[in-house]
Write a protein that binds this DNA or RNA. Structure first.
Lengths: 197, 197
DNA sequence: AGGATCATGTAACCGGTTACATGATTAC
DNA sequence: GTAATCATGTAACCGGTTACATGATCCT
């Protein structure tokens, strides 16, 4: 359950409530591990049962009460254990709705597919923008969070950003090459795809 | 449920039994959509209930009986509908155990992380090899499968292979750059990571 | 007045993973 | 003999998604 460790990891930066944890997720590690609010609340209960976190209610004059979670020593230990234990195998097999449709692309019209590739490119450009926004918030976090060394922390955060950027850029390049190849290819579209069984 | 459409898509190439479908999966589209045997059997039952496939038992003298599935006309229509309907949004948010640990890499020893990066690189090279093997089987399939045009079919199959290759190559490049940066970085490892809450 | 944000949860559902069950044939 | 391959399934589990429920404050 990587989610719980991602949460414990963020809680090492300081105590937080669930709602806030979700916001930090979206602005720091969502590009490597995403989480929804309902998942976070469910997992916080589970972590508390395990003794990895404790919570206190913080009353607020303006707005609803907050349940602030803090990581415990067993929680830190569990996190550190998980962190060291890199999976031996990184998965090769993927699941990508877009790529799956490209695999069967011969059954679509050329015009249509090029349109989809263009939309793909435009989305990957948007994603690059989101990554840049995440990167910008790192400066804020490394000063707000309780970290040993902001420079060292940002080194690793930026590794994950860089990975995202390079992957997105190569996908854009790939899609552009596909469009080029498609345009060069002499197309015969069978309006009524043959029934062959 | 993309899995069922991936299955229908493969069944347009000809009738197949579940076991064989799994093998085709692994050697054709597992790099874009993976499937396990138990999932395939479960989904075949479900597709038959919906009327998208029909099955007949084929008796074998050597070895156990086979249940051969064929796609029906409603199945073809459903597949074609799904194929045209590209998702408007491709997901930006990911879930990657390796990257998640890199995010918290400041809590590990330099030596250890470099070792993990090197293992990562070696695995991605293996994955490149798997992709090449998949690509090699395309020649066999495009002659065995009932396809309108082998050349056209392979065009798209190769698009998905190319995407995998380019993505893997950039990941290798990324990891190599990370190692370089780490080696240059003046490291202070806190053996006993400070408790800061 | 109405939508966004703050804030915390529960319940159902869905699909992917793992384990279990069975048994024949083939290759080393 | 034993491991791999052929062949078909069921059941439990696990974690991510979506919908539902409630209600205050803040901004336009």
């Amino acid at each position: 359950m990587s989610l719980s460790y991602a949460m414990l990891g963020l809680l090492t930066y300081g105590p937080m409530n669930g709602y806030n944890l979700k916001k930090i997720f979206d602005k720091s590690i969502a590009h490597v591990w995403a989480a929804s609010l309902s998942q976070i609340y469910r997992e916080l209960s589970s972590l508390e049962k395990k003794g990895y976190v404790t919570s206190i209610i913080q009353k607020q004059e303006d707005g609803p009460d907050k349940r602030i979670y803090s990581i415990t020593d067993p929680g830190r230990d569990a996190f550190q254990e998980w962190l060291k234990d890199f999976p031996e195998q990184t998965s090769f097999y993927q699941r990508d709705e877009f790529m799956l449709r490209i695999f069967f692309g011969s059954r679509l019209e050329k015009k249509e597919i090029i349109k989809e590739f263009e939309n793909f490119i435009s989305q990957k450009r948007d994603h690059l923008q989101i990554l840049n926004e995440i990167k910008d918030t790192f400066n804020i976090y490394s000063s707000e969070f309780k970290v040993e060394s902001a420079e060292k922390e940002e080194l690793f955060w930026n590794f994950t950003i860089k990975q995202g950027q390079m992957s997105l850029e190569v996908l854009i390049k790939w899609a552009e090459e596909c469009i080029k190849e498609l345009e060069e290819y002499n197309w015969n579209y069978n309006r009524f795809y043959k029934k062959m069984n």
